[in-house]
């Protein structure tokens, strides 16, 4: 590894993502697995690289920009979560031998390793081999092999087009309890923020390219001051959110008190900035921006879902209650 692992991995991720974007979920997992990108967080014992969360953020930024049809943030975090107690599953995820997904809605009931109930909004669920889902008990979850008896999966409607969400119904299915996924869920939010921001940056770049070439009123659109100001504002919100996110990532796993505040700030800044930048990108492409084929809507659909999960409103409400603590830090 060179002195700058983030840059090197980001470059690898960008190359791999461009290829993986043209594959299905299983193929994308294999492709990213071959480059070691799904093991950035997992320990060496399961074939991982054991790098910090900021490196995973760079990977997810690249795969979200390219619209890779795989829940990548879920995979890198699941590999780390499962490494100690379920090394075979973690190693398979790292190698890209199977897709893992996470149910973002609903909870199972879990009785002595057998779970029942309905969960859903699991990205790319139909293509997944493993599912992580909450159970009724606070912070508790299960790992479910989706091939287990008593499990049915069906597609749901959502915004994300490349990773259609799925509903999973379990009837007395054998599952493995996972004890505390609170940290996993908090890190997943940060990686989703990183992904949405990566996608937003990509869309902003495309827009700058478009308005530099498109001519109206006898000159390139980019020559109009109003439009330059608009792009400058988007850049400002991108850089602000990026700074907030980088700070939260750098504190990941250190001082849990400061981490709380930094994460709330990042959730708020990224949750607002990412979809707004992509919306502006669509706007500045004019009629073309509204077409299916131009494809900016694909990043927007994902970023809108990420923003809903980041819940900037709730993050600000929590922050407001902790201002004294923020000032003391």
């Amino acid at each position: 590894m060179s002195d700058d692992p983030i840059r090197e991995i980001a470059e690898t991720a960008t190359r791999a993502a461009a290829i993986a974007a043209g594959l299905d979920a299983a193929g994308a997992a294999r492709r990213l697995g071959e480059d070691g990108l799904l093991g950035v967080l997992a320990p060496e014992s399961v074939g991982g690289l054991g790098l910090p969360l900021s490196v995973a953020a760079a990977v997810v930024a690249a795969t979200e920009a390219a619209l890779v049809p795989l829940p990548v943030a879920e995979a890198v975090l699941a590999a780390r979560l499962l490494a100690e107690r379920h090394p075979e599953v973690a190693a398979a995820i790292v190698a890209g031998e199977g897709v893992v997904t996470v149910a973002t809605a609903g909870a199972f009931t879990d009785e002595d390793g057998r779970c029942s109930g309905t969960v859903g909004r699991a990205p790319a669920g139909l293509a997944a081999r493993w599912l992580i889902a909450r159970t009724g008990n606070a912070g508790a979850a299960v790992l479910l092999d989706l091939r287990a008896e008593g499990v049915t999966i069906e597609e749901e409607r959502g915004l994300d087009l490349e990773r259609p969400p799925a509903r999973i119904v379990a009837r007395d299915a054998v599952a493995t309890p996972l004890h505390d996924i609170a940290g996993f869920e908090a890190d997943l939010l940060l990686l989703r923020a990183a992904g949405a921001l990566g996608a937003a940056e990509h869309c902003l770049d495309r827009t700058i390219g478009h308005v530099s070439n498109r001519r109206q009123f006898g000159k390139p659109l980019v020559a109009f001051q109003g439009l330059r100001f608009e792009l400058a504002r988007q850049k400002l919100s991108l850089e602000g959110a990026r700074a907030a996110l980088a700070h939260a990532l750098s504190l990941a796993g250190q001082d849990p008190r400061a981490e709380g505040i930094a994460r709330l700030v990042a959730r708020s800044a990224c949750g607002d900035a990412a979809p707004a930048i992509i919306e502006a990108a669509i706007q500045l492409h004019g009629g073309m921006g509204f077409t299916w084929d131009l494809g900016l809507h694909r990043q927007l659909r994902r970023a809108r879902e990420a923003a809903a999960a980041l819940d900037a409103v709730a993050a600000r409400a929590a922050l407001a209650e902790r201002l004294e603590q923020a000032w003391a830090a």
């Binding site: 959502g158 109003g226 004019g286 921006g289 509204f290 809507h297």
Partner: peptide, 22 residues
């Protein structure tokens, strides 16, 4: 949910047609 996802996506056109925001 389905209605407002569609409304959300379509509303993006509203600042483009009949003359853009700019």
């Amino acid at each position: 949910q389905q209605r407002f996802r569609t409304v959300y996506l379509r509303s993006r056109a509203e600042t483009i047609y009949a003359g853009t925001t700019q």
